[in-house]
């Protein structure tokens, strides 16, 4: 297929189907994330960058023999590896008998959050999640550094950017109705993550998606009046600092890093507070990084359009 637009759309559909499969495999949080990330944000980013590169792939003859060889070797290794695996769906596999039972049996007493995924994510393995937030932050830094737009371009093009979708009345009206709801849904996902699927990451992505929708319909300069680029940059860092700060506070109160038990007198309450705060940190960083990445791509488009 040489039309990259179709390629990107198909990969988005693939992600959506994956999400439903994850749901079938009981991984509700993962399905949620895959739907919002794989089918949502990542498709969006790919489309945004397609706007900057050529949409059609050049027809080239390539020699796939070496690649084929590598792939077949890898495949053989994988299939070989599967042969001694515990069968799919069996309950007595080592995976289900060694570490996981504690999460399922004790987490209610130790952490008091019904969604075990949240309690493992934010507390038992909270440090991994700090790392994950940092990964997002790193990507944000990378995109900011790579797609920098000088102040001059910004000022020059400020008056020039028309809202591309001026004529799309239906889209604008529907979006106006939906965007507040999307943002509210994001907040619901953020603070309801303890009880149902969801949490800081998904909420951040949904929040960013709402803002991105607004940006697409009403123009970059309109949305940047509210969400100033410099402020969002600060927010990307603030989320990580909030997460790490909670950890440091735990340390100052006498516990280990990220040991929320020490946040309050009652360990379960402490855990609750800790999880709430760190999820907020994740949400802030993710939302602002996603927004800033999209803004940077859009600025590039603007720059190309009006510089020539």
């Amino acid at each position: 297929m040489s039309d990259l637009f179709a390629v990107v759309m198909l990969s988005g559909i693939y992600s959506l189907i994956s999400a439903s499969l994850f749901l079938d495999l009981d991984a509700v949080d993962v399905a949620f994330t895959e739907a919002s990330v794989g089918a949502g944000i990542s498709t969006l980013l790919m489309l945004a960058s397609l706007k900057l590169v050529s949409r059609y792939q050049k027809k080239t003859r390539y020699k796939p023999i070496l690649a084929f060889f590598v792939v077949v070797t890898t495949g053989a290794m994988l299939i070989y590896g599967t042969l001694d695996m515990p069968h799919f769906g069996t309950a007595d596999a080592p995976v289900h008998t060694h570490v996981a039972p504690r999460y399922l049996n004790e987490s209610m007493g130790e952490i008091g959050v019904p969604n075990v995924v949240t309690s493992v994510l934010a507390s038992y393995r909270g440090y991994d999640t700090l790392g994950e937030t940092l990964v997002i932050f790193t990507a944000g830094i990378g995109v900011m550094a790579l797609l920098m737009v000088s102040k001059q371009t910004k000022q020059e093009s400020k008056k020039l950017i028309p809202a591309d979708m001026q004529q799309q009345i239906i889209l604008r009206i529907v979006a106006k109705m939906m965007i507040p709801l999307i943002l509210m849904f994001a907040l619901y996902v953020q603070f309801h993550g303890d009880y149902g699927p969801g949490g800081g990451f998904q909420a951040g992505v949904i929040f960013a998606a709402g803002i991105i929708l607004y940006t697409m319909l009403f123009g970059l300069s309109t949305s940047q009046e509210v969400f100033k680029a410099t402020t969002i940059e600060l927010f990307t860092a603030a989320g990580v600092l909030l997460y790490g700060g909670v950890g440091v506070v735990c340390m100052l109160l006498g516990g280990n890093f990220l040991d929320y038990d020490f946040l309050k007198h009652d360990p379960v309450h402490g855990q609750h507070l800790g999880i709430l705060l760190v999820e907020l940190g994740v949400g802030i960083t993710v939302a602002s990084v996603m927004m800033i990445i999209f803004f940077k791509f859009t600025w590039r488009t603007v720059k190309h359009k009006y510089k020539k």
Binding site: E233, A237, G247, M251
Partner: peptide, 21 residues
């Protein structure tokens, strides 16, 4: 007793702090 984690979180928290500076 916290040295092992300080080793990592000092640069970890310093990195986002740079954005503020």
């Amino acid at each position: 007793t916290h040295l092992p984690i300080l080793q990592v979180i000092i640069p970890l928290l310093a990195a986002p702090f740079c954005i503020f500076l």
